[in-house]
C-alpha cells in the first residue's frame, strides 16, 4: 500500500519535473502515466522489482475503482459559477450534446474505416 502510493507519487513527481522543464505542454501527471507504463514494460521481468510492481498495480486498481469520488471537490466548485450556468446553461448543454455526438460518430467511423484498410483484431 505505502510502496504503491510512494511509487505513484514518485512517477508524478518525475512527470511534474519533466513538465516544468519542457514548458508545461503536457501536464505532469500525464507524463507520469506514460512513464509508469514504459517502466512496467521494460522492467516486467526484473526479479528485484517484482514486489514493488505488484504493490503498485494493487494500489492503482484500488484508486481506479473509486475514481469517481476524486472529481467531487473540484466539481462542487460549480457553486462559484452559478452566474455562468444561469446565463449560458442551455447553450452549454447544447454544446456538450452536439460535440459529443459528432465526436462519437467521427471516431467510430474512422476506426472502422482504418480497420478495413489496415486490418486489426477485436479480441484479447
Amino acid at each position: 500500500m505505502i510502496v504503491g502510493i510512494a511509487t505513484l507519487l514518485t512517477f508524478q513527481l518525475v512527470g511534474e519535473i519533466l513538465a516544468y522543464e519542457t514548458g508545461g505542454l503536457v501536464p505532469g501527471p500525464v507524463l507520469g502515466m506514460a512513464l509508469i507504463a514504459i517502466a512496467l514494460l521494460t522492467m516486467a521481468k526484473w526479479q528485484r522489482v517484482q514486489s514493488t510492481q505488484s504493490q503498485t498495480i494493487a494500489t492503482s486498481k484500488a484508486i481506479l475503482a473509486n475514481l469517481g469520488i476524486l472529481f467531487i471537490p473540484a466539481g462542487v466548485g460549480i457553486v462559484k459559477h452559478i452566474d455562468v450556468l444561469v446565463a449560458h446553461g442551455l447553450a452549454l448543454l447544447a454544446l456538450i450534446v452536439v460535440s459529443t455526438v459528432i465526436t462519437l460518430a467521427v471516431t467510430v467511423w474512422s476506426f472502422v474505416l482504418a480497420k478495413r484498410i489496415f486490418g486489426g483484431a477485436s479480441d484479447e
Binding site: Q12, G32, I36, T56, T59, I63, L70, K115, G120, E124
Partner: peptide, 26 residues
Amino acid sequence: LLGPATVALGIPLYEKLALVRRNLLP
C-alpha cells in the same frame, strides 16, 4: 489524489498492450 490517480491510468494501459499492438493503426 487526482494526480496519483492519473499516473495509475498507466497500469491498465500497460496491461492491455497486446491489444493495442494488434490494433495499432486503426
